[in-house]
Design a protein around this nucleic acid. Structure first.
Lengths: 354, 354
DNA sequence: CTGAAAGCGCTTACAG
DNA sequence: CTGAAAGCGCTTACAG
């Protein structure tokens, strides 16, 4: 017998779901006893308990989460506010968050906001009205804050890949560490003249990745290959940078380039390849983002830094749950480790490095 | 005075939100009168009504949506189930849906499911427990159905960019129409030898786009330029196709290529350009998807078909709301119009076409 | 025009 | 071990 068969048609002809009252009646006990049996609470004859559970199962009973929330003062829902309609960052973060939360019985509302303050307010209000237990705010840059006065919000908040106001709790990728890992890997492969081509200086990630590059080099007692080249986060800029390297005499070219993102790496590889420079033999290239659509389309496939965005979303959610439970959690921004995804553009096919 | 100031600290030290009881007490009326005043229901002295509303405002009162849902048998929430973790389709759809719903006071739960039936079940159960009013199911292919027995679900369901089971209601882009518009535009620009390079035949979208290509051609009394070239949805395949055209004698080359997606178009343009063939002068190229990251990175920028995914999400949500309201809505799949995004690869800068 | 009562679907002390 | 009562925060008939 299918559970649906046990459902009753109500007056309007739609299917009415069984309530705990139905279960109690069918089992011949009171509602409070039914509740206790279904929640494994208190002591009771296990024979009774099992009978009630069997009846519930048969009626396809599922407790109404809203009724539960009302008495428990806890909705088991979260709100995710994001202004990244582009989707590059939000979707992995949301997927990681949503999956981890689903396993714990909590569901997450998606609020796609542009940066119009009025719409932000609308969405925040909706989340308050729906009595979500907490909010995760996610952005597309770690140095920009959303235009909402979130501190005035009556619930725990966690920031992901977005600026974290003083005293708040945030999660961002460890840009410096990721860059350090990428450059160290290049060094371990024997490269010594490692250039850096990256995005606009106005992004804090640019400074951090540059520091990682410098630290890896100095730890290996190597000099930076000139200044970092800062420009746009685009293929076009990567291409231009590649042409610039090509114009150097062979002896003055870098033997590797660490790029600030995958698009730059893609453009750079195109420029190099067009001029007959072999990647990785002549110049090794490493990117940043592991945006698969780019990283797997380059020839050869791109070695790049993965920011572990799913994990970022997951950790943010778990921490938010702790806060909701009243556990003490330290204020401040956490930098979660990136991991290097080794493909072929760095000169190491490295099936073992995976 | 800020609203937050009016909040009271409860026993645990967290901020307690004002309830309707607080409002009623502060205004010196009964709870039922307060409710009526706040909901603009029934008749009452407008002086009383305004006084109550003022008190509510001052206390920062916001009705608890879950309590409301409990009595109204309507939660003003929706679930969005998607298996497109890739994000290409889901994010625009979700953004369009979420924005349209937010304006109507309904919030949407995001359920990122892989295709593991067990996790699908987990998420569907969560949505049922949370008593969402309806479900929108979105996928990454219009010819694949999710592995859930959704008909057994006790609520209205709408499918977006996914297969639509018999008798259900679905929304997909009008692939045939989009292709027709793209090819017609090429024809209007004077092209006559229009080839088609596209994805795997196993995708229904491939057949539909091919039909659009054929219809536009036959309406203009033009012949197809050979068979459609079917391969992968990748730059690599587009590149290979481009090389193939290059290998033809000049007089036997197409003067335009309609590509099944933007990645193919990108690869094709690269191959053409590398061989000294000018785009669009020698061969015009049009893509499909308007995936901006590709469409704006090609040289020249790509003219392509936009599937209007945001609008798809919006329409799906509005229709779902109608179903929830009990309005009659016709079963079947709706094909929503695509629109051509004219850039430069088709040979028409067309500032007026925008 | 206003308020007391009942109820939405649950859980949680508290009596028996 | 089991059940009656009260209550979570609201709304909706129904009396006054």
């Amino acid at each position: 017998m299918k559970n649906a068969d046990a459902s009753l048609l109500d007056a309007t002809g739609t299917i009415a779901r069984a309530t705990i009252k139905d279960v109690a009646a069918a089992a011949g006990v009171s509602v409070s006893t039914a509740s206790k049996a279904l929640n494994e609470r208190g002591r009771m004859a296990s024979e009774t308990r099992e009978r009630i559970q069997a009846v519930a199962q048969q009626l396809g009973f599922r407790p109404n989460a809203m009724a539960r929330a009302l008495v428990g003062q806890r909705s088991f829902t979260l709100g995710l506010l994001t202004n990244d309609t582009y989707g590059r960052f939000t979707l992995p973060i949301a997927a990681g968050l949503s999956a981890a939360m689903a396993d714990r019985g909590v569901s997450v509302f998606l609020c796609a906001i542009d940066d119009e303050p009025e719409r932000v307010r609308l969405n925040v209000n909706a989340m308050e009205d729906k009595r979500v237990d907490g909010l995760v705010v996610s952005g597309k840059r770690v140095d920009r804050v959303l235009p909402v006065d979130l501190p005035a919000v009556h619930m725990p908040v966690v920031y992901v890949n977005a600026a974290c106001p003083p005293g708040a709790i945030g999660f961002v990728p460890d840009d410096e560490g990721g860059a350090h890992a990428a450059v160290s890997h290049l060094i371990s492969l024997g490269r010594k003249r490692i250039a850096h081509v990256t995005g606009p200086r106005s992004f804090s990630a640019v400074g951090l990745r540059e520091q990682g590059w410098q630290r890896a080099l100095s730890e290996a007692a190597l000099l930076c290959f000139g200044e970092a080249l800062s420009g746009e986060w685009s293929e076009a800029f990567g291409y231009a940078a590649g042409q610039r390297f090509v114009s150097y005499p062979v002896s003055e070219r870098p033997d590797a380039v660490f790029c600030g993102n995958d698009q730059i790496a893609r453009g750079l590889i195109d420029a190099l390849t067009l001029s007959g420079i072999r990647v990785p033999q002549d110049i090794a290239v490493v990117g940043f983002d592991n945006w698969e659509i780019f990283a797997t389309a380059t020839r050869p496939p791109l070695t790049t830094v993965d920011m572990a965005l799913k994990e970022l979303g997951r950790q943010a959610g778990l921490t938010l749950l702790d806060m909701i439970d009243g556990k003490p959690v330290e204020a401040g921004q956490r930098r979660l480790p990136c991991r290097l995804k080794v493909r072929e553009s760095c000169g190491s096919p490295a099936p073992w490095a995976e």
